[in-house]
């Protein structure tokens, strides 16, 4: 999977949850990816260079790893 596209998608999700406050946005972003992304997409983004991720998305993905 194109990791740049996945990073873009994760950031877009996080940006739309951001107005709910940081903690809620992190949890919602993680849950959204858990609920709607295919396993290969999750695996691909977790293995990718995450420097392009915005803070909420980065923390959310860290939660997904655990």
């Amino acid at each position: 999977m194109d990791s740049a596209r996945l990073v873009y998608m994760a950031n877009q999700i996080a940006r739309n949850f951001a107005a709910q406050g940081e903690d809620a946005a992190i949890a919602a972003t993680a849950q959204h990816i858990r609920d709607f992304w295919d396993p290969r997409m999750k695996a691909a983004i977790l293995a990718a260079d995450l420097s392009g991720l915005e803070p909420i998305a980065r923390i959310a993905l860290a939660q997904l790893k655990t």
Binding site: M1, D2, F36, W37, D38, P39, R40, M41
Partner: peptide
């Protein structure tokens, strides 16, 4: 038990 691919994701994959 895992969600599958959406149409645009299928094309990417």
């Amino acid at each position: 038990a895992e969600p599958g691919l959406r149409i645009p994701n299928m094309l990417d994959a």
